[in-house]
């Protein structure tokens, strides 16, 4: 399968004049077309920093990230926007945008200087609406719909941006179990139907194990990318939290807490 994003010998962190604050090093990733990949790690381990680095918001300290065969730092902003789209956790600022208009904003990297939509743009927007089953909400204001629906709208916006790589920052955080499952199912369906590569960070390991094709695990020592089955048999999840009272139950596919 074709590689969408590759990271070689990557070090991430915040370059400081006095000392380099390296958060993680020797990261090697290979994210392929049609894969749904979960990023797992304890709070404060550097998941956000890794996502920020992979989306080009902050430069790597060492190593190269290649997106679609081109060095990430050499993409110009518009090219990057045509190759990478994001879904963030932060709240949207108040506005009167409708669901349709919000999704259509995803077409900005392709539209003219005024941002007017061509037939092709409209086609892509209705395709995104259809894939996320949001057609009936198209004319609603984005603040009139539920959190779960809004999350799908934001995913539709990323789909309309028509990029081979989509990154989601903790998309399941504010949702209940039912909506978490349906959201991950949707992501899985999208990777299968559109052949996109989707990377998302999450704390729901049990769901990630069942629904992702691969998982990137960040621990204090290392960053490992592998299939859920291999990660379980290599006992990687035992090292996820630096705490003896939390152990991974391989049969259950989740954690148990020692009293």
């Amino acid at each position: 399968m074709e590689t969408v994003l590759a990271a070689n010998n990557l070090s991430i962190g915040y370059p400081d004049k006095k000392q380099e604050a390296v958060i993680a090093h020797d990261i090697n990733l290979n994210l392929k077309k049609g894969a749904l990949i979960a990023l797992i790690g304890a709070n404060g381990i550097g998941k956000s920093t890794l996502l920020r680095t992979l989306t080009g918001i902050q430069p790597p300290i060492k190593g190269i990230i290649q997106l679609n065969g081109i060095n990430l730092t050499q993409h110009n902003p518009k090219e990057l926007a045509q190759n990478l789209s994001v879904v963030l956790t932060e709240k949207l600022p108040p506005s009167n945008l409708t669901v349709y208009e919000l999704i259509a904003l995803g077409r900005q990297p392709y539209t003219n200087w005024l941002g007017s939509l061509t037939e092709e743009d409209k086609l892509q927007v209705s395709r995104a609406l259809q894939l996320t089953q949001l057609e009936h909400l198209a004319n609603k204001k984005y603040y009139e719909i539920s959190d779960g629906q809004l999350q799908r709208v934001l995913i539709a916006r990323a789909l309309a941006q028509d990029t081979p790589f989509i990154v989601l920052d903790e998309p399941t955080t504010h949702l209940d179990l039912l909506h978490k499952v349906s959201l991950l199912r949707l992501l899985k369906k999208l990777t299968q139907e559109t052949d996109k590569c989707i990377l998302y960070s999450t704390h729901d390991l049990d769901l990630a194990l069942q629904l992702s094709s691969e998982i990137i695990v960040m621990t204090q020592q290392e960053v490992i990318q592998d299939s859920p089955a291999n990660l379980i048999s290599n006992k990687v999840f035992d090292r996820l939290f630096n705490d003896d009272s939390i152990t991974f139950d391989a049969e259950k596919g989740g954690f148990t807490v020692k009293e």
Binding site: P77, V86, Q108
Partner: peptide, 23 residues
């Protein structure tokens, strides 16, 4: 007038605007 398009992107906040290729 030249900012009409980026202004629309800014409705989603700074990070989304940047991710849409806005300088």
């Amino acid at each position: 007038v030249t900012c009409i398009k980026p202004l629309n992107a800014m409705l989603l906040g700074e990070r989304y605007a940047k991710s849409l290729g806005i300088n």
